[in-house]
Nucleic acid binder design. Structure first.
Length: 307
DNA sequence: ACATTAATAT
DNA sequence: TATATTAATG
């Protein structure tokens, strides 16, 4: 009997799956949403990670989803995930299809966008570059591209309005144009002043007082108020000023924005409907993650007294 | 490979 | 409605 026992034991051991055949539980058991929220990604994705995310990391807390959108290089991950997902035929779409939550363009985030564009000059302001300059955690090129597309349409419409002279509802604040072109459509865009040179057809206009291809690694803790800067016409990027001083509250760049802020706030509740946190993420949402009923007012970006 | 645009999907 | 995605094109 002893011999049988030892035989049995070795056989048993032989038939254990090799490590390669084992399925990575951490990935298949975690729902896509959780994976995104907690920054869990496939092992294969780790080595391909760039600097971008490091520097962007602390930008905002409530942002999520750094993982590369679609580029799952890991065949192992894909195949194993696929294998599991198929089997049951239950409605269980696997982690392979991870969709990152929709980005919400808060006025703050949009402002960053505008500032980035302003600094790059319209000529150089392409999605990738803008994205880099914004250095917002989790922000993708496509996020920016989509937004840029809309923003350009907005600018175009606005020129048309100004040239056509039909609307008199344009005013200048702090060197920035604030227009109510379309009363309802443009809340977001109107929340940040449009640098005047955006409207003219000047092909190129790098604001190269201090150009800034990349940022010093040490300054990872940036993010701050550029409100006055942009308004003052001297737009500067966060990276270069150590200030990290963010205005916690109330009004954004433009005097008018107070109104809009409300709209945004309420809008969010509406959009989210029953499940506010379900699919929507606010990258760079600082102030507006508000539930008035809750008494919870503001999430400060990060500790305001960083200076 | 990326950018742009229009159209369409969620 | 706002944002994402896709397809065509440069």
């Amino acid at each position: 009997m002893r011999e049988e026992d030892s035989n049995w034991f070795s056989k048993w051991e032989d038939e254990l799956p090799s490590p390669e055949e084992l399925i990575p539980l951490s990935q298949t058991l975690i729902t896509p949403d959780l994976a995104l929220a907690f920054d869990i990604r496939s092992p294969a994705d780790f080595h391909q990670q760039g600097q971008q995310q490091q520097q962007q990391r602390q930008n905002q807390h409530n942002s999520s989803a750094p993982p590369p959108p679609r580029q799952l290089n890991s065949t192992e991950f894909e195949s194993s995930a696929a294998d599991i997902g198929r089997g049951a035929g239950g409605g269980d779409e696997p982690a392979r299809t991870l969709k990152r939550p929709r980005l919400v363009w808060t006025p703050q985030l949009h402002k960053r966008f505008v500032d980035a564009v302003a600094h790059l000059g319209i000529k150089n302001a392409v999605p990738k570059t803008i994205m880099q300059l914004m250095s917002v955690d989790g922000l993708t090129r496509e996020n920016v591209a989509s937004h840029l597309q809309k923003y350009r349409l907005y600018l175009k419409r606005m020129q048309g309005l100004n040239n056509g002279g039909v609307s008199g509802a344009t005013a200048v604040f702090g060197g920035g144009l604030v227009s109510s072109g379309d009363p309802v459509t443009d809340h977001l865009f109107a929340s940040s002043p449009v640098p005047p040179h955006f409207l003219h057809q000047t092909g190129e206009r790098p604001n190269s007082q201090h150009f800034m291809p990349y940022m010093p690694p040490a300054v990872a803790l940036h993010q701050k108020q550029m409100a006055e800067d942009a308004a003052a016409g001297g737009s500067m990027l966060p990276q270069y000023h150590h200030h990290l001083h963010r205005r916690q509250m109330g009004h954004f760049g433009s005097p008018l924005s107070g109104q809009f802020e409300h709209h945004f706030l309420s809008r969010q509740s509406q959009m989210g409907g029953p499940r506010i946190n379900s699919g929507i993420v606010q990258i760079g949402g600082f102030v507006d993650d508000v539930d008035p009923a809750n008494g919870q007012k503001f999430l400060s970006l990060f500790p305001t007294g960083d200076d």
